[in-house]
């Protein structure tokens, strides 16, 4: 009996290994080998014909002495500051409105979600046109004459507006599913106690939604620290405003695949990951102050 049992267990194990094998081999080849390579590359110099040579921390020294790099780091953080709080607040507002008793709820939800199914490349294209300094509809509507995308102080703001517009629907859907889990009885009780909508929001909705809010926040921050495609499509490489908008990942792309400095570019990636890691850790420490898990 026990012999048969070990036979069965062995057979189970063999099946399990077979079933995880494609994924694990894939991860090792596609991700873990490249991870090590990128790390090693960041300590190497790319020479002609793709040869590499170990050069210690020279890439990092060069990087830290490069004003463009610090500017890109600041741009990335600024982009995050401009997009995340406003984007999440608006998404929460949309989610709360959609959670109320409204008609065409499905229709509204579908409309807000629309940018999610459109490639950022296509979305950026129409926004470039709307932000156009000479013929753009935004200037006509606002009655102003701003060169949004070529003015160093507005270019990143324009990109941030597009990013917020693109992400509201997605974040709202996530938050809405959190809101729908809050039992209606809390609101009924609060209503009987005479608490108004504002009071209900701060004493019921916000604490109850905080775990979902936290997940959405983390996800959105990570995404905005990695921003690349939107800025790439909004701002041309020949646009002189580049130093004022390019994110770390944009700089990475240009260094790796336009300039061919793969070692230097790898150092930028490592730095970006450290930055994302630090921000995430800070978030996880900070959450203890405001995220409410004992519901």
């Amino acid at each position: 009996m026990s012999k048969q049992k070990t036979m069965v267990a062995k057979q189970e194990q063999r099946w399990a290994w077979l079933m995880v094998a494609p994924t694990i081999i894939g991860l090792l080849v596609l991700n873990y080998y490249p991870l090590i390579q990128t790390f090693l590359l960041s300590f190497s110099k790319t020479k002609t014909f793709g040869a590499v040579e170990f050069n210690g921390i020279q890439n990092y020294i060069d990087m830290f002495q490069m004003p463009e790099f610090w500017k890109a780091t600041w741009n990335t953080i600024l982009f995050c500051i401009l997009t995340v709080p406003v984007g999440i607040a608006l998404a929460l507002l949309v989610a709360i409105l959609l959670n109320a008793k409204v008609r065409f709820k499905g229709g509204f939800r579908a409309i807000y979600f629309l940018p999610m199914v459109c490639a950022p490349a296509a979305i950026a294209m129409v926004w470039r046109w709307m932000f156009n300094g000479e013929y753009g509809i935004i200037n006509s509507i606002l009655g102003v004459n701003i060169n949004w995308l070529t003015n160093p102080s507005t270019a990143i703001l324009a990109c941030a507006i597009v990013a917020i517009w693109s992400s509201i629907g997605y974040d709202a859907v996530l938050l809405l599913s959190g809101l729908q889990n809050i039992s209606k009885s809390y609101y009924e009780a609060a209503h009987l106690d005479g608490a108004g909508p504002i009071r209900q929001f701060f004493s019921i909705t916000l604490p109850m939604i905080s775990p979902t809010l936290f997940v959405t926040l983390i996800m959105r921050m990570m995404a905005s620290l990695k921003v690349y495609d939107l800025i790439y499509m909004m701002i041309d490489q020949s646009n002189p405003v580049i130093p004022n908008v390019q994110s770390l990942m944009y700089l990475f792309y240009r260094e790796a695949f336009v300039a061919g400095n793969k070692g230097f570019a790898s150092a930028i990636v490592i730095w970006t990951i450290l930055l994302i890691g630090i921000v995430t850790v800070v978030q996880f420490i900070g959450q203890k102050k405001w995220v409410n898990y004992d519901v």
């Binding site: 991700n31 080998y33 490249p34 990128t38 990695k226 690349y228 990475f252 990951i273």
Partner: peptide, 14 residues
């Protein structure tokens, strides 16, 4: 792997 941004893999994958 889930926590890693995909850009870290791009150069070696290429």
């Amino acid at each position: 792997q889930m926590m890693m941004p995909s850009q870290i893999f791009v150069i070696p994958q290429y």
